[in-house]
Design a protein around this nucleic acid. Structure first.
Length: 115
DNA sequence: TGTGTGACTAACC
DNA sequence: CGGTTAGCCACAC
């Protein structure tokens, strides 16, 4: 028994939004969740990211927690892979946290609109 | 089928 | 101001 079609849609949306994150920008799990109308389901966004590895076009490294901490860096294989990818995009990462997070923050709700 | 867990966040104490 | 609780819900066992 499949869980639900809505689920796949939710995951698909997460991936879709994540893929829209511009180069050199980052966003948060909560922002994506909010954009999908599930502001309190930010954990699901993280869960979706867990399966994002299957999608090369999904820049999961541009998704951090609400304060810019690379909470999921350990899921990239190397402990510094995430930070390095961000660094190569011009995003400074210090102590596993994005420097000037607000400045690089890309909010889908604002950039794409609430719709 | 029920329980535990997690790449989160906000509210509480 | 740091630890805990609660809410969220899909997924593993």
């Amino acid at each position: 028994m499949k869980y639900s079609v809505e689920t796949e849609n939710f995951f698909d949306k997460v991936y879709a939004v994540t893929k829209l994150i511009p180069y050199g920008r980052v966003t948060s799990y909560g922002a994506i969740a909010k954009y999908l109308g599930a502001a309190r389901s930010s954990r699901m966004v993280g869960w979706a990211m867990n399966g994002a590895g299957k999608y090369p076009d999904v820049p999961a490294h541009r998704v951090v927690n609400r304060v810019g901490i690379l909470t999921g860096k350990m899921h990239f294989g190397s402990s510094n892979a995430m930070a390095q990818m961000l660094a190569e995009e011009g995003i400074q990462v210090e102590d596993d946290q994005v420097v000037d997070f607000k400045k690089f923050f890309w909010d889908p709700v604002v950039e794409l609109g609430m719709e």
